[in-house]
């Protein structure tokens, strides 16, 4: 059986600058894959390509046998790929429940949206309880704290019921407590989903990651378990070249 996500020979060029060059990546059904790399390594760009936000100059992205390159963003979502953003975006005027409900309703035909929502669908209930936001269901999303927003975004992703989830730095800007809470959440989600997580935070990685792909200058540098990656001299070098503290974290 081939992998759920297969990226081959990917090139992304921004005004002559190669953000990704010749990248290959496979993610199997059911995997929880961490994607790390120094600033500007091309992690966000990779997610952007998979989700249709950025057009690659060359290469293929196959998801469950379907080519994603050239499709529009919402079509890719409809094939079962969901994502969050590095800076979370929720709809502040809508309540938490309405945010989740919108995320859960995209498969309905447009005309059926003309009816009013009654209560919460099972998918929305699940998203609420998984993210622990049940108590805030009726509140406007605008009043949420930074951490709660990130959780709401993850909740919207769960409510979408995608086959593949792409999370871009879900713990960025979170307190230590919130990080651990998010880690639990990820582990929970990964139980029955295929998940790719972009993460900078080494501590977080050590704690929750199993399979790690290290990106450097737009290509895959190393792939393996957390231990393998941490022991790899090339990874140490990349991080040493960038930031000593962070490198210390990886090598230790």
């Amino acid at each position: 059986m081939s992998a759920l996500l297969e990226i081959r020979g990917l090139d992304v060029v921004f005004d002559g600058f190669r953000a990704i060059s010749g990248l290959d990546l496979s993610v199997e059904q059911g995997e929880l894959r961490f994607l790390i790399g120094p600033n500007g390594a091309g992690k966000t760009t990779l997610i952007d390509v998979v989700t249709g936000l950025t057009r690659p100059a060359a290469g293929t992205v196959r998801f469950g046998g379907e080519e994603l390159v050239g499709r529009r963003e919402h079509e890719i979502v409809r094939l079962g790929v969901g994502r969050t953003f590095q800076t979370s975006v929720v709809f502040e005027e809508l309540t938490v429940l309405e945010n989740l409900d919108l995320a859960a309703s995209f498969r309905r035909p447009l005309w059926s949206l003309l009816r009013r929502r009654r209560g919460a669908s099972p998918a929305v209930e699940r998203a609420l309880s998984t993210t622990g936001l049940s108590g805030l269901a009726g509140q406007r999303a605008g009043i949420l704290s930074h951490g709660q927003r990130q959780w709401l975004e993850i909740g919207m992703l769960i409510a979408q019921e995608p086959r593949l989830l792409l999370l871009d730095e879900p713990v960025a800007g979170m307190s230590l407590d919130e990080r651990a809470r998010t880690g639990e959440l990820l582990t929970e989600i990964a139980r029955d989903h295929t998940v790719i997580v972009v993460e900078h935070d080494m501590d977080f990685l050590r704690r929750y990651a199993s399979q790690v792909t290290v990106l450097h200058e737009g290509a895959v540098l190393v792939e393996g378990s957390v231990e393998q990656v941490r022991a790899d001299p090339r990874v140490q070098e990349v991080y040493l070249g960038r930031a000593r503290e962070e490198a210390g974290d990886v090598v230790r």
Binding site: E73, V89, F91, E93, A103, F106
Partner: peptide
């Protein structure tokens, strides 16, 4: 309020 975000909700 966020047209670009809505695309990623599948609409």
């Amino acid at each position: 309020d966020g047209e670009d975000r809505v695309r990623f909700l599948g609409y």
